[in-house]
Design a protein around this nucleic acid. Sequence first.
DNA 1: AATGAATGAGTCTTCATTCAT
DNA 2: TATGAATGAAGACTCATTCAT
Lengths: 201, 201, 201, 201
Amino acid sequence: MSIEAPRAKQPKRERGKQRVAALLDAGAALFAEKGYEAATMTEIAQRAGASIGSLYQFFPSKDALAEALFNRYVERMGLVLDGIAGRAAGLRPAQLADLLVDLMLDMRADRDVAMTLLNSVAAVVESRKPPRYMVRSHVAAVLRAAKPGMSDEQSLASATVVTQFIKTVPVLAEAEEHGGQGFVQEARRMLTLYLERILDT
Amino acid sequence: MSIEAPRAKQPKRERGKQRVAALLDAGAALFAEKGYEAATMTEIAQRAGASIGSLYQFFPSKDALAEALFNRYVERMGLVLDGIAGRAAGLRPAQLADLLVDLMLDMRADRDVAMTLLNSVAAVVESRKPPRYMVRSHVAAVLRAAKPGMSDEQSLASATVVTQFIKTVPVLAEAEEHGGQGFVQEARRMLTLYLERILDT
Amino acid sequence: MSIEAPRAKQPKRERGKQRVAALLDAGAALFAEKGYEAATMTEIAQRAGASIGSLYQFFPSKDALAEALFNRYVERMGLVLDGIAGRAAGLRPAQLADLLVDLMLDMRADRDVAMTLLNSVAAVVESRKPPRYMVRSHVAAVLRAAKPGMSDEQSLASATVVTQFIKTVPVLAEAEEHGGQGFVQEARRMLTLYLERILDT
Amino acid sequence: MSIEAPRAKQPKRERGKQRVAALLDAGAALFAEKGYEAATMTEIAQRAGASIGSLYQFFPSKDALAEALFNRYVERMGLVLDGIAGRAAGLRPAQLADLLVDLMLDMRADRDVAMTLLNSVAAVVESRKPPRYMVRSHVAAVLRAAKPGMSDEQSLASATVVTQFIKTVPVLAEAEEHGGQGFVQEARRMLTLYLERILDT
DNA sequence: AATGAATGAGTCTTCATTCAT
DNA sequence: TATGAATGAAGACTCATTCAT
């Protein structure tokens, strides 16, 4: 139906892998700083210490770069959440809440870029259609690991709300940096309250 | 030399207000559809039935238009939240939670634009520095109205978390449209849980 | 089926008409000098004394400019050929041959551009599909005016060959400039021979 | 220091010739399909099953490739025309006309590329300056072979016109493919008429 | 005040050519 | 000699903004 958008090209040599990583990092930094549209391909290449031609060798379009960046974020989140799922069985709700909140604090930078891209890049949105909600399904797995008997329906609804909720943590952390106090702590409290209700009942 | 009859200007001002409103609406629609960068001033003017020159008469730059739009959103939110504050005294947590969630569902369209602008427009970000968190302070007022004895510190921290939380409601509503069930309901539950804790204790 | 390519925009003011003409002339000159690909839009605008933005105001793409140029050529040829058709009735073959050869000598510059475009620009080729052979049908009209009884089939076949033949006249004229002699004269002779055969029999 | 065994190089040279031929064929195909500018060196190399580096080993620039291709066309035309000259003595005008028309039909593909290059590549045009009209001089030889007494001046003028005329044959053939009839036949007739005049008188 | 043509800096992207491996 | 990653100049096109009418 639709014309297949060219994806990122895989590097074959070791040098290429390093370059791709540098390019992705530069893209992440600039997209986060200026937003998708305002960041220019030329500046991204420069920051990665590469030429514009080199950037296009691996990412044939700005959209392709954005998509690769988004995929990297989803993969990283999945990895960490799987780790949490592995340990979730023995944890109390407060501990699980802490783990999830801390995860978002750690991934703050990645998350910013991912949100920017999800809001600006048609290609990224399209590649997620029908919405697959990768992160959410990993969170659902965590919840089921924490309470083995939970129904699919319940774990899905809870995971949706929890996923959205923890996304706000970076904003709270930023608000603290602007002079607030105890915002993240209050979020831990709210999340704990909710997890106690759905896990302990 | 002669005193202008103020009456004569009245219709002009009236038309001006209508035109400004039309321009803001057109801007809101296009920013929501395409994002800030992709929306063009020419198209915004067209959709408002005005010429590009007319648009620049009222908003001297694209950033100025964005800022005006953001301010309109903040004002509207403030107005509604003040209304809720007026009624908050006699409500139970679950009722208050419903009011806040419903508010976000009603303002969904406005909210989308506001977020888009907050993510893309330096001028909007700058105009909020140091962050004044207008919406948050109205939410804090609601909480204090619901529990008159609450400390400023507590109401601030809670309002911050609640404000961020209710911002996720439009996303949950959208997820339901893509085939989920009970997401918004689950959010009401989580918010109720939290409000019970901070209001009833 | 296919996405409608945006065509040239009609100027509304007098100044605009002059500008469009200047732009077309500049385009014709540069396409003829360097070929379609090698000619740049920037240089075309410059030669017309306009800005690149102004060029794009009237011709939304390079293809659109090419197409407009080609259409102008077809129109001009049609006009002149219709004039010849009006006088063809009383002419002897040699006189008609002269008229046709002279026409090509006069239109030499236009013809060069038209051929260049027909060979390089997909949009021009497409806009002629299914081939309508505008010039050929005008030549056929000339032949039928010269010999009223001629069948449609005969006039079409003869017009096709004659049209292609007279297209070679500019090349012959150029060859004379590089030191040859009597080439165009020889073409008149060959064409006369053919016209005598199809008109006098 | 030591004398290289020539035998060892032989296979390399042989492979080299094959590779050059493959590269020329790939270039011809792509220039014909897309035009000179739109065809890329990378794609030409790919289609020939060679690397871009290899292509530049044999043809140091895109222009050099174009020139080589054009020369190959001229050589091939010369070869065939010499063959016709060898048989021209005993032929009647109609037979000679057929031979020349058929030649163009056979060489249609080659001819397309040659014309494309002649219209787009400065280097090819330059390499023909002062115009040497290789093909024309072979045609002149054919005419002199058909009528031994013909003056140089006459054979030159006639060869010029005939050469240009037969170049139109591929276009006529194409027009037939788009639904016309008898165009090539009409060209044979016109050429026969002319050859009868210059050869039989 | 209103209009919309004109401007040109800035963007993404391509591709001939080079050169390290 | 062969390969293909790297380079960067150059081109088509966009759009915020200005200003003559």
